[in-house]
Amino acid sequence: MTTYIPSLTLPEAIFGSLPGSILLPITLGSAVGYSTRRNNTQTAATNRRESLTLKQPPLRPPASVFPPVWTALYGVMGYAAHRAVYLGTSPLNTTDTILAARQGATLYTIQLGLNLAWMPLFYGLNRPVLATIDAAALVGINSYLAWLWGTKVDEVAGWLLVPYVGWLGFATYLSFGTGYLNNWDLSPIVGGQGKKKST
């Protein structure tokens, strides 16, 4: 159960705009991804070697899969939020529906912040434990959000979040697996020899 907290919720104008709802998570997600990569001072060749040196869990897809999948999921997530909040807060709805839509808007905003924090935690700050906790929290929050919006506001919005929840579950597995297999230390590899930098 959650409550509507205006100070922790994106403005209703964003939810009311279909392009704004879709483009906001895509733009923010792309910016975080770009800035995290940009902060890495190593060469592209070293980055590729480092990726190959890190132990990866089974079923990890190629790195090229992640940008298009996340872009699509961000877009669908934004559309779901638009449907739920815009349709759910209509004055023609019951008080319970409007309240559920607004509570969901707060949860959506919080989960978007947690989503954007994962990449800096995992790659930028070398905190795979915190990143995995973050990913697991995202699964729980978005499962509840899909249920809340799907049963109390707009069934389509709830179903639109299902692929996102599924991918978050997979991302949690990858986050945990990569951290565990590398002893929870993802610090850069020195000289391609598989030795970690001393801290």
Score class of each variant (00 low, 15 high):
113 G>A: 14
115 N>A: 12
76 V>E: 10
134 D>I: 06
115 N>H: 14
149 W>D: 01
128 P>T: 10
99 L>I: 10
136 A>E: 06
138 L>K: 02
116 L>N: 04
146 A>G: 09
132 T>G: 05
129 V>D: 09
125 L>I: 06
131 A>V: 10
107 L>A: 07
154 D>R: 04
93 N>L: 08
138 L>G: 02
112 L>C: 12
124 G>P: 03
83 R>N: 09
74 Y>D: 01
135 A>K: 04
116 L>E: 07
74 Y>Q: 14
141 I>G: 01
116 L>Y: 10
97 T>D: 09
126 N>R: 11
82 H>S: 11
84 A>Q: 03
105 A>K: 00
129 V>L: 12
83 R>D: 00
141 I>Y: 02
116 L>K: 05
100 A>K: 00
148 L>K: 01
129 V>S: 12
103 Q>I: 13
121 L>R: 01
120 P>A: 09
144 Y>M: 06
129 V>T: 10
127 R>A: 13
146 A>R: 04
83 R>H: 05
117 A>L: 10
123 Y>T: 08
87 L>V: 09
99 L>R: 15
81 A>L: 08
96 D>M: 09
143 S>Y: 05
128 P>L: 12
78 G>Y: 01
147 W>R: 15
110 I>H: 02
102 R>L: 14
145 L>I: 08
86 Y>L: 09
100 A>R: 00
84 A>D: 03
74 Y>K: 02
98 I>Q: 13
75 G>R: 04
115 N>W: 01
110 I>A: 14
119 M>N: 12
149 W>H: 10
117 A>R: 01
152 K>A: 14
89 T>N: 11
79 Y>V: 04
128 P>Q: 08
121 L>A: 07
121 L>H: 06
127 R>G: 03
142 N>A: 07
118 W>G: 00
148 L>W: 01
80 A>T: 03
89 T>Q: 09
135 A>S: 13
130 L>M: 10
150 G>H: 00
90 S>R: 09
100 A>Y: 00
142 N>S: 12
105 A>Q: 05
88 G>L: 08
90 S>I: 03
135 A>R: 00
133 I>V: 15
104 G>P: 04
97 T>L: 07
78 G>W: 01
146 A>V: 05
79 Y>P: 03
147 W>G: 15
141 I>M: 08
95 T>H: 11
146 A>F: 03
144 Y>P: 06
126 N>W: 14
95 T>V: 12
125 L>E: 06
132 T>H: 06
80 A>Q: 02
88 G>K: 00
105 A>M: 07
149 W>G: 03
115 N>Y: 04
131 A>F: 04
105 A>S: 10
104 G>T: 02
121 L>K: 04
77 M>K: 01
134 D>F: 04
77 M>L: 14
93 N>C: 08
96 D>E: 15
84 A>W: 00
108 Y>K: 02
74 Y>C: 15
115 N>C: 15
124 G>A: 13
103 Q>P: 02
123 Y>M: 12
124 G>M: 08
103 Q>E: 15
101 A>G: 12
117 A>V: 07
145 L>T: 05
112 L>T: 06
94 T>V: 07
127 R>V: 04
76 V>F: 11
95 T>W: 06
137 A>E: 09
93 N>R: 14
102 R>N: 13
81 A>S: 13
92 L>Y: 10
106 T>F: 06
91 P>D: 13
86 Y>K: 13
98 I>S: 14
97 T>Y: 03
128 P>A: 08
122 F>V: 08
80 A>M: 05
95 T>D: 15
